[in-house]
Write a protein that binds this DNA or RNA. Structure first.
Lengths: 327, 327
DNA sequence: TTGTAGGCGTTATCAC
DNA sequence: GTGATAACGCCTACAA
């Protein structure tokens, strides 16, 4: 692959002149300019970003660390992040932590080795001591994505508020019982529970939390629930994957949506609208989140002195479909 | 971030000695070794891969170009590719071409700029003239993934054979009519059609091809089809996404699977087993494909002289679930 | 407007 | 064993 020095030799000028032409910075003799450009085109010159990174001090790389890119929600985010980064000439180097803290730590080290200019990550355990420690000694601008993270810039939707939206929606439908399927680590459950409580009609006592994702167990629990409870049950799953699983089980058991079971998922992945009945789901503003994260990073790179932390939760939006439609 | 030169200064040795210690290559005085290692640990030294790349001639980067990572199938592949690359110390830099040739071309240029050691891509138009041209002048070892690509190493499953498997399966179920939903660009349709023809019972005349993915049109076509055809219809969708869409429409129309409609998708994404009835789908050996692609690349990097092209199609496997279950 | 010189952080190749 | 020294390809002064 041809280098600037080589072009310089071929066109009989100095290498910095070639650099000036190719970067279009300063004024150069039009004649020389043409000669150099022609030569560069002819040999399909591509600047060596590696060398440029070493000389300058930007690698034009963002590091992305996801927990699991095979989750459509994250894959979607990745696409937007890449798009947004490209607008500023950045490329991305990608890692999956697989929800494993040790891997995440390894990823961070690799990022350091590549001297990425910025880091966008979905932390595995955003509020643990060891993570905070690691972030403190990380000398790269970083943004936490989808999780509220103490002491660092973060872009996320308010899960507590979102959980509340779902609760209100299900209450309005006249649900008598409630099920939450998933873990309570990210605030959805908290918000869901709180809103049920606040309604004051004691419906929080009619809330069951199901943590298992084992299909057999899940089926058994649901069957039993609907045998014992005649009224309408609102089901809130902490992500679409779980919601789709429940959707399938309800179909199998012949429990009608939305009449007997009103189901709501989270992330509004593309499958939601393909199912029948369509799966209601909480939509996160993926594109805006991606843009915000990248812009935050860019700002920190441009102005390293500004140390104020960005932490304004964004708002999720409930998309109602057939699985929890009203009358 | 601390450098070798800095460590050298702190420990009173020369920079090359620090390099020797940190890379564990050659013998060094144990005393010095300890001193250097201690200093490196203390400052959490991370070798500057950028500088190393420039000096040596490996960037330890693989470039990945997908058409659309938000397709679960590709996201899944990405994860395996990353895993496999990591085993050999490689990291990946990722791009989406969005099924757009111009973007793909841009990606390739960026790859060149980063001097990636190898390239794994899902080509947008693997057999077009311009793509072939581009590949010819690409001076980076490259492997085409999921698509048979003339004149270049490629890792893919035999779509024609896979289409045949589906045809035989649906025939065995006793289908009287057939629908293929999707494009015919990758051989699935070809194989499907060919096998139907070979059976000699004239069933290829009872094959309808639906290209639209517009939900309204699709619904209308399917409704009409089942109004006019009383027997069992075998439906083969060119990917799971389309299959899931059809699954939903059939549910909505109250057309029973597998009795009236026997549905088969492609890619065996995780959603298949969550639906009810479970969605039959053709499974590609993702992990093996990823491993094979990476290993092919590594071999080409190690032995640039070997020029034989790898092109042995792998075999897909049909996973039968409720949507096309037999009696 | 253009060329010279130095440096970015490594690796590799020499002598010592 | 260890330390100079020269790359790698580019950028950024500074000098002409």
């Amino acid at each position: 692959m041809i280098t600037m020095t080589e072009i310089a030799r071929l066109t009989g000028v100095s290498q910095p002149t070639v650099s000036r032409v190719l970067n279009g910075n300063q004024a150069v003799n039009p004649e020389i300019r043409e000669r150099v450009l022609a030569c560069a085109r002819e040999h399909n010159f591509q600047p060596n970003v590696i060398a440029r990174s070493l000389a300058g001090s930007r690698t034009m790389l963002f590091g992305l660390v996801f927990t699991d890119i095979s989750n459509s929600f994250f894959a979607d985010l990745e696409k937007y992040l890449e798009q947004e980064a490209k607008k500023s000439g950045y490329s991305v180097i990608l890692f999956n932590s697989d929800y494993d803290w040790n891997r995440e730590k390894e990823c961070l080290d690799v990022m350091r080795r590549y001297r990425v200019d910025g880091l966008i990550l979905v932390p595995v355990e955003e509020n643990s001591e060891r993570f905070q420690q690691e972030m403190k000694k990380l000398d790269i601008p970083a943004v936490a994505l989808t999780r509220k993270t103490e002491g660092m810039d973060c872009v996320y939707v308010d899960h507590i508020e979102a959980g509340g939206q779902v609760a209100r929606h299900l209450q309005q439908l006249g649900c008598e019982d409630y099920i939450f399927a998933g873990t309570s680590r990210d605030g959805k459950y908290e918000g869901f529970l709180k809103t049920l409580k606040d309604a004051g009609t004691g419906c929080e006592e009619r809330l069951t939390k199901i943590e298992t994702k084992d299909p057999e167990k899940l089926r058994k629990i649901l069957r039993q629930h609907f045998e014992e409870h005649a009224g309408r049950t609102g089901i809130f799953a902490y992500n679409d994957r779980r919601a789709i699983q429940i959707h399938g089980i309800l179909q199998e058991l012949g429990i009608r949506m939305p009449e007997r079971a009103s189901l709501v998922g989270f992330d509004n992945t593309y499958t939601c609208e393909l199912l029948y009945p369509g799966l209601s789901s909480v939509s996160q503003p993926n594109q805006e989140m991606a843009a915000k994260a990248v812009q935050c990073l860019l700002r920190k790179i441009e102005h390293p002195e500004e140390r104020e932390i960005m932490d304004e939760p964004m708002k999720a939006r409930l998309i109602v479909r057939g699985s929890s439609a009203g009358a």
